[in-house]
Nucleic acid binder design. Structure first.
Lengths: 218, 218, 218, 218
DNA sequence: AATGAATGAGTGTTCATTCAT
DNA sequence: GATGAATGAACACTCATTCAT
C-alpha cells in the first residue's frame, strides 16, 4: 500500500511518516534521557524504544547532543504552554501566587522527566541550551506577569514590598523541585518515604505556607 | 629515603602510603565525579588525577560504583561534621535558624561537588547510598536539634507552631541547592548571571527572609 | 564494483558480504578456540584472523560465549552431515561397524579442532550446548541406525546380543578420541611418538580389532 | 608462641609451616586448575583457597606454569603409587586385566581432577610435562607388567597373541576416560544422564566386556 | 617465611557514529 | 526516507607478576 493511500482523508488526520518517526524518536529519547541522563542514555536503546532504525536518528538530529537539545526544547515548550494556560493575570494576587505554587508542584510531580533533563543539562553547564535560539526566544513572560501580581498585591496592602519576581519564582520552583529531585537520597537519609500520598500532600501544604508566609504582609 | 626517615618527628605525622594512595584516589574521584557525573567520569582519568596506577583503584574500591559510594560517604561525613560544629543548640532560636540557613547556603556555595554528587546519586535512585551502612548510621542529629529549636522558639512565642523540622530542613536546603544546582539553565533562561557577588548576596538575603518569614509568628 | 556486478552468473553464487563476514569470523574463531581453548582464545586475535573489525563479532554473535556456541553448532552440524553420508544402513552389519569405526578415527584425525572444542565445552560442563536448541534437534539418528545394524547382525548370527548402541558408539569414539586428544601426554609418558604414520595405522587396526572383537560372536 | 614451641613432641607430628603452606597451595591449585583449566584458573583465587598470601605462591613455585607443573607431577605421582598397589603381577592373567580395567575406571571416577588436568596439559601440547624430569623418570612400569601378563595369558592359551601392551593400556584408559571426560556433551547430545549409579555400573560392565572380548582368544 | 602495596599489558565489551546502498 | 553492515576509539575491569620490607 502506498504512502498516499494510507493518508486517506477518511482516517483521522495523522502525521506523515517522517513526522511520526521524528516524534517517536523524541518521545523515546525523552524517556531514555530522563531515566539515565545524557551520559547514561544509549542511542541504540533510543532507536529500539522508538522502533526506528538508528541511522534515522542521525538523519534527523545530527548527533546525540542534537537530539538532547531537541528534547530539551520540546520540554521547555510544553511547560511554557502549560504556564500560559494558568491565566494568572486574571486572578486576585493571593490566588495567583497560590495557583502558581500549586501548578509548579503538580507539574514537576507529573513530569519527572523535566527534573532529570534539567539536571543533566545543568551538569553540562547549559551548553546545549545556550546554543538554542528557540529557547532564548521563549523567554518566559511569566516573570513579568508575576511582577505585576506582586505589585497588585502590594498596592492592595496584601503583599510586602520589594519582592524580586525572579527570586520568588526561583524559590517556588526550588521548594518543589528539590524535594522531588532529591527524593531518593532524602528518603534514605531520613529513613522516611517522602513520596507517599500523605507526604506529598503535606509537602504541597508546607510549600504553599512558606511562599505565602513570605509574600503576605505580616 | 626510607619510610622511617620520612616519618620525622618534626613533621606532622604522615599518612602511610596506603592511606595516602586511597586519599589521593578519593580526592581525584570526587573532582571527576563532581564535574562529569557518575556516568561521565572515567576511571582512567581518576587514576591520572590521583597519579596512581589505575589498578590500585580496583584494589582499594572494588569497582567504579564502589569508588563512587566511598566518595559519597566521604562527602556526607564532611557536611555532617561541619553541621556539628554549628552548635545550634546553644543559640537563641531565631539566631539558630538564621545560622543554619546561612551555613547551608555557604556550604553549598563552597562545595559545588556536593550538589553534583547528590544529583548523580539521585539519578541512580540512591542505589549506592542504600547499600551503605555508614551513611545510615550517621543519620543526621540535626533534625532533632532543629525540632528542639522550633519548640523553644514556639515556647518563647517567637515561632509559629506545627512546623515539621524535616520539611523545614528540606526547604532551607532547597532554596539554596536549587539556585546553585540549576544556575546554568536559570541564568540562560532569565538572561541574567545569577552568580555575581551581588546576585549571590541577594539570594542569601532572600532565602533568609523566606525562611524567617515562615517560622516567625506573624 | 557493485555487489550486483560481483554476482556474475558465470561465477558460483557468492555469499553476501554479511554472510561472508560471519563465515570468516566463524572460521577464525574455530581455529582460535581449537588451538587455545575457550579461556585462552582472544577476541582480538579472532578479529585479526578473520580480517574483520572486532566490533563486528559482537554485532553478529553477541559475545565470546555466543561465538563459541556458534562454532560448536557449526562443528556438530558438519560431523552430523558427514555421518549421514556414510549410508551405514545400506551395508552388511560387519562392514557397517567397520566403516563407522574407520570413519570416526579418520574424522577425528582430520578434524583435530573437533576434539579441542569438545574438551573446552566439557570443561565448561556443556553450558553452551545446553542453551542450544539447534544441537538438541540434530540429535544424532546414528544411534538408531547403529541399533538396527546390531540387530541385523544378531539376526544373522554374526553379532552377540544385548549390545547397547549408545555404549558401543561411545566406545568407538573413545578409542579414537582419547588417543588423539591425549597424544601429547601419552607420547611424553611413553617416550614414543604416537603420531607417526605407522603408529596411526597401527592404532586404527587395533581399534577396529577391539570393536569387532567385541561385537562379533565368538 | 614460638614455632619451636608449637612443634612440641607431645603434639601429633605435623608438618612444618613451610610444608603446610606448600601443600595448601598445591591442594588449592589442583582444585582450581581442575575446575577451570589452566587458562581459567586465577592465581588470586588459588591464594584465597589456600588461605596464604599470593606472593607465597611465587616464592615457592616461581609462576603459574611452575605451579601447574607441580600439580601435574603430584597428580601423576599419586596414580603411579595407586597402580603399584595393584600387584597385578601376582594375579592370573584374566584377573589381572579385569582388575586393571576396574581400577582405571574407578580411579578416574574418583579423581575427576585427573581428567581435567590432563586435558589442560594436552591443550598445551604437554609443554609442562616435557620440562619435568621427575615425570619422565617415573615412566610407568605398568606397561612392562602388562606385557608380561599378556604373554602369560598367551602361553596359557587364554589370550590372543600380538597384543601391544601400550595399545591395550591406552584402550583401557580411553574407554573409561572419554566417557567421564565428555560426560557433559554426551549427556546433552543423547538426552540421557550418563552419571546415574545405574549408568555408571553399566559402563564398567561394558568396558570390561570390550577389553576381555578383545584379549581373550575366541 | 611471609606480606600489603603496586603495576604494565592486556581483555571482553561498548559506544556514537559512518558507510554504502 | 530508510537501512543493514561496519568501525575506531574508548571503556570498565582483570591478570600474572613484582616491589619493598
Amino acid at each position: 500500500m502506498s504512502k498516499a493511500a494510507r493518508l486517506d482523508i477518511d482516517l483521522p488526520p495523522r502525521l506523515r511518516d517522517a513526522d511520526r518517526s521524528q516524534q517517536a524518536i523524541l518521545d523515546a529519547a525523552r524517556d531514555e534521557f530522563a531515566q539515565l541522563g545524557l551520559g547514561g542514555a544509549r542511542v541504540d536503546r533510543i532507536a529500539e524504544r522508538a522502533a526506528v532504525n538508528k541511522r534515522l536518528i542521525y538523519y534527523y538530529f545530527g548527533n546525540k547532543d542534537g537530539l538532547f537539545l531537541a528534547v530539551l526544547e520540546n520540554t521547555y515548550l510544553q511547560i511554557r504552554e502549560a504556564e500560559r494556560q494558568l491565566h494568572l493575570a486574571d486572578l486576585p494576587p493571593v490566588d495567583a501566587v497560590r495557583r502558581l505554587t500549586e501548578f509548579t508542584w503538580t507539574y514537576y510531580l507529573e513530569h519527572p522527566e523535566f527534573i532529570t533533563l534539567l539536571n543533566s543539562e545543568n551538569l553540562h553547564r547549559a551548553t546545549h541550551l545556550e546554543q538554542s535560539l528557540r529557547i532564548r526566544e521563549m523567554n518566559s513572560p511569566l516573570i513579568q506577569t508575576l511582577g505585576e501580581i506582586l505589585e497588585r498585591g502590594r498596592a492592595l496592602g496584601q503583599f510586602r514590598g520589594g519582592v524580586d519576581p525572579v527570586q520568588l519564582y526561583i524559590s517556588i520552583a526550588a521548594l518543589a523541585y528539590f524535594y522531588l529531585s532529591n527524593q531518593h537520597t532524602l528518603s534514605t537519609i531520613f529513613g522516611r518515604d517522602l513520596m507517599t500520598p500523605k507526604a506529598r500532600s503535606e509537602r504541597l501544604s508546607h510549600v504553599t505556607e512558606v511562599i505565602l508566609g513570605y509574600v503576605l504582609r505580616s
